[in-house]
Design a binder for these strands. Structure first.
Length: 572
RNA sequence: CGGAGCGUAGCUCAGCCUGGCUAGAGCACUUGGUUUGGGACCAAGACGUCGCAGGUUCAAAUCCUGUCGCUCCGACCA
């Protein structure tokens, strides 16, 4: 391809609305352009890289035995009503009407569609297992699209759905996808960490996310360098150190704390009560009733874990008014001590780290007062103990006891064991060997293809621009003749090398623009072609061309050996 | 949805506080010339409903109100 024949609008300056490196580079290198927030056009170069990622995904899905299909983006609400997600997921659904006023939605995912297909076509265990996948545009009404392709209203996703007759078979399907994902991201040149993940309301029991470590990521990963434990922050557990025990037997004592409404304030003079000796009392509203959540003062609630304990996501933090009406005090003065509760009881969910805690301080349910010498088992009625807290860096790994670390990451893939939620709801049933009707056991497996592309750029760049891994580069080689006059020796050689590389299947772009060398060099580095071959009068006089790997050092090679050297570098 | 910021040329931005000549700069673009191994130089030129609507005023890019859009933080997020 000749540069002048394609369309690569590079930018010298960074567009004002890009914030993170990969987003800036996507725009500056002329890969994408924004139509409006969360919606982007892929320009020729960006599309080439995107197709490379798609093809790697496709090859590995095929290798793993998955079967490619293509499902409609436009879907009828009925199947979503049957699965129960028309309500559960209504916030993210783009909904529309046709001319007959009939309702439709743009699919944010395709469990309902594929399960409907399978329900109609599969009726025997002999037809299982099956795994169907597609690479399709998905639509989600994101609250806040951001960071370019990272979180968009419309994006390309690979999703696969497995159907198995038995639990054991489903485990095998899951494992195959897990292994395929590791290969896919490796081939894309990405370093990923597979982490245990919260299955959320997808209804699954078993789940891993593939994370790309990056400061700009939207997720947080908790990991242990010693034993290899790694989990999404929503799922991660930790062993909290026991707080020091003092005054174990003393009676509860009420004391005045005028104006004190934070853990931090109570830790300061004149009170000097360390955060880990305070009980934090949170009030939530569950099915229009208040519940109390108790944590140690230095811990934070993990709402995903709370959802798991409550068995629903239909809860929220209570408002100050709701709290005052029931407890007679405002946030900052709340506590779960039975004697201070108006009704005597409220359902109390307490974090495990508080088990056995004595000599604690908590709110008195009276503004301006706290209680000290509280023994949680003696003075409170805990309905349920559970792991409710957010794991923090430095806490002990629950597997090996070594300190945990936390870092940000971009989620690029997610594998779920779904179970039978959708197959039951949508009738994907089959007859087993005994002639008994069973719902298929499902798994679902997603890869954000457009997000993966951006994650590659986020991980592979320097101050000059992108550094494409060869496997996903829009072109593997950029030939940069410094004289472009037709029939000049430089241009003739450039064209010869271009033709030879092409005949070996190498994708080459020839920068035939009448630009000064500096402009061409800067552009090629900004875009990040893995190898650049510069040909100028000076080097040609010595019978040489310059070969510059994007991430390596420049070498001069004899012009007739250039092609062989490039092929070697590309491992073709 | 709460908080903050920004909308002026294709891009990056100045001008706004303190209203007043014909609305500016750099980059990019067109033409001519000079240059030619790391984002050249000179000259000439083209490009604007100052986001939109309303208001105040003799006069609005500038002040006020509303509205739309964008960005960031938070909330939220199968």
């Amino acid at each position: 391809m000749r540069w002048s024949q394609t369309f690569i609008p590079t930018l010298k300056e960074t567009p004002a609305d890009a914030e993170i490196p990969s987003h800036k580079l996507l725009l500056r290198a002329g890969l994408i352009r924004k139509l409006t927030g969360g919606l982007y056009t892929f320009l020729p170069l960006g599309l080439r890289a995107l197709r490379k990622v798609e093809q790697i995904v496709r090859e590995e899905m095929d290798r793993a035995g998955a079967l490619e299909v293509l499902m409609p983006a436009l879907q009828p609400p009925e199947i979503w009503q049957r699965s129960g997600r028309y309500q559960a997921a209504r916030e993210v659904l783009f909904r529309l009407q046709d001319r007959a006023k009939r309702e439709w939605l743009l699919g944010p995912t395709h469990e309902e569609v594929i399960t409907t297909v399978v329900a109609g076509e599969i009726s025997s265990y002999r037809q299982l297992p099956k795994n169907f996948y597609q690479i399709q545009t998905k639509f989600r009404d994101e609250i806040r699209p951001r960071f370019g392709l990272m979180r968009a209203k419309e994006f390309i996703m690979k999703d696969a759905y497995s159907f198995d007759a038995t639990d054991e078979a489903a485990q095998i399907s899951y494992r195959k996808m897990y292994d395929a994902y590791a290969r896919i991201f490796q081939r894309c040149g990405l370093k990923t960490i597979p982490v245990e993940a919260d299955a959320g309301v997808m209804g699954g029991k078993f789940s891993h996310e593939f994370m790309v470590p990056a400061e700009t990521g939207e997720s947080e990963v908790v990991y242990c360098e010693d034993c290899g434990y790694a989990a999404n922050i929503e799922k991660a557990t930790s062993a909290a150190p026991k707080s020091e025990i003092r005054n174990p037997k003393s009676e509860i004592e009420k004391f005045a704390t005028p104006g004190v409404v934070t853990i931090e304030a109570l830790a300061q003079p004149p009170y000097h009560i360390p955060a880990d000796r305070q009980i934090k009392t949170l009030v939530y509203l569950l099915e229009s009733k208040l519940i109390l959540i108790l944590l140690r003062g230095d811990h934070q609630l993990n709402e995903a874990k709370l959802a798991g304990v409550l068995g629903t996501t239909q809860f929220r933090a209570a408002t100050a008014e709701e709290i005052y009406a029931e407890l007679g005090a405002h946030p900052g003065s709340l506590g779960g001590v039975a004697a201070t509760l108006k009704s005597g009881t409220l359902p109390i969910y307490a974090d495990e780290a508080l088990r056995g805690a004595v000599g604690m301080t908590t709110g008195a349910n009276e503004d301006g007062f706290h209680l000290r010498n509280v023994s949680i088992e003696r003075d409170l009625v805990v309905q349920q103990w559970a792991d409710l807290r957010l794991a923090q860096a430095g806490e002990a790994c629950s597997q090996c006891g070594r300190p945990l670390k936390v870092r940000r990451a971009i989620e690029v893939g997610h594998v779920f064991k779904l179970g039978t939620k959708y197959s039951e709801a949508l009738g994907a049933l089959f007859l087993d060997e005994e002639g008994k009707q069973q719902p298929a056991i499902m798994g679902c497996y997603g890869i954000g293809v457009t997000r993966t592309l951006q994650a590659i750029i986020e991980q592979c760049n320097d101050t000059d621009g992108i550094i494409w891994p060869v496997s996903v580069a829009p072109y593997a080689v950029c030939i940069t003749p410094l004289t472009v006059t037709a029939d000049s020796p430089v241009m003739i050689l450039a064209e010869k090398i271009c033709a030879e590389l092409s005949s070996h299947g190498v994708e080459v772009i020839l920068d035939d623009r009448e630009e000064r060398p500096g402009v061409k060099f800067k552009d090629s580095e900004l875009i990040g072609f893995p190898i650049r071959i510069a040909i100028g009068e000076k080097s040609l006089a010595k019978g040489e061309v310059e070969l510059k790997p994007r991430a390596g050092t420049l070498v001069a090679v004899k012009s007739d050996g250039a092609v062989a050297r490039v092929l070697q570098l590309l491992h073709v």
